[in-house]
Every structure is written in structure tokens, then in C-alpha cells.
């Protein structure tokens, strides 16, 4: 084989490498839920425009962040304590991932994102299990709080009754 033939075959092999990635992102909490879902669809379209194919995803849901995050939007600092958390799994050319990351950095509604290499078949935790646990913990807290309030109200009534009795007795005396 001549030199030119070898080079062309090598170039063709390099161009066609595709890998499976997973991206998780946090969206600004000031938008509504329908807008968040629309934003997720827009991200899928930008994945397709960068020669990627979509595998699986989870729609974003509101989540409390563990710490305050800062984002500069239009020359102003904005601090966020909640946000819409979602993730997408996709397959893309190796060379076009950097373009996709650049477009995400310029996006004003995305606070943070993380792109990670992943396997195609592994399943990950979903929003339903997270929200179930949140609901169960809330119910448990509400029951205990109601009991505490009831007991404290009873104590307050008894305390005020005692105070009034003592006042009356002091006045009489």
C-alpha cells in the first residue's frame, strides 16, 4: 500500500469514534416547571445538532442544593439555593463534545453541568424514589411536630392558669 492510502484509512478510523456520555445539569429555579421541561427538550436538540444520539434521560425536578451556588448573569451576581436537577445519557463523537460544553457554558439558564463517561446499560436512581423518601420523612416530621404542638399548648394553658391564680391570690392578700 502506498503512503497516501495508509493515511486516508487512518483518518477515517479516527473520525468515527463515538462514546457514551452522561450529562447532569442544574437549571435556574426562577423558571416554571413547563419551562424546565422545554429546556430539557432544547438540550436534547443541541445534542442532536452536535452529531449525538439520545439514549435515556430524566426530566428535571426541583431539588434543594447542599450549598449556595453563584452564577454571573448579565454582569450581576445571582445566588441560588434550589434548582432543577436533571440528567441525559447520550452518544456522541469524541471531537464534538468540546463544542457542546462551550455552548452549555454560555447558556444563561444552566447553573452547573457535568459530563461523564458512562456505560450504556447501567441504570441509575430516579426521581420517584427520591421524592418518596422526602414525602415519608415529611409525614413523619409532621406527626411528631403535631404531637409536640399539642403537648406544648396544653402546658401553656396550664401555666397561664397557674399564673392567673397566683395573681388573684396576691391581689386578695
Amino acid at each position: 500500500m502506498s503512503k497516501k492510502e495508509i493515511e486516508t484509512t487512518i483518518d477515517e478510523e479516527i473520525e468515527s469514534i463515538k462514546r457514551v456520555y452522561e450529562m447532569s445539569y442544574i437549571l435556574v429555579p426562577t423558571i416554571s416547571e413547563s419551562d424546565a421541561e422545554a429546556k430539557a427538550e432544547a438540550l436534547k436538540k443541541s445534542i442532536a445538532s452536535n452529531q449525538g444520539s439520545f439514549i435515556s434521560e430524566e426530566t428535571p425536578y426541583v431539588r434543594d442544593l447542599a450549598y449556595e451556588m453563584l452564577k454571573v448573569i448579565k454582569n450581576a451576581n445571582h445566588r441560588f439555593e434550589t434548582g432543577y436537577f436533571g440528567w441525559v445519557k447520550f452518544e456522541m463523537d469524541v471531537e464534538s463534545v468540546s463544542n457542546f460544553e462551550k455552548s452549555l457554558k454560555l447558556d444563561e439558564e444552566v447553573i452547573r453541568f457535568l459530563i461523564v463517561k458512562a456505560d450504556r446499560d447501567t441504570n441509575i436512581i430516579t426521581k420517584n424514589s427520591y421524592q418518596k423518601k422526602a414525602r415519608e420523612s415529611e409525614e413523619a416530621n409532621i406527626d411528631t411536630a403535631a404531637e409536640a404542638e399539642a403537648s406544648s399548648v396544653v402546658e401553656e394553658v396550664a401555666a397561664t392558669a397557674e399564673v392567673e391564680e397566683s395573681k388573684d391570690s396576691s391581689k386578695e392578700a
Binding site: I26, A66, G83, R112, V116
Partner: peptide, 13 residues
């Protein structure tokens, strides 16, 4: 470390 970066776990609690 990835979970800390994405705000799921705190760095210091």
C-alpha cells in the same frame, strides 16, 4: 467528589 460538585452532598456539614 462529583456529587459534591453537583450540589447533592455538602463539602462541609
Amino acid at each position: 467528589k462529583r456529587a459534591r460538585f453537583m450540589g447533592l452532598i455538602p463539602y462541609i456539614a
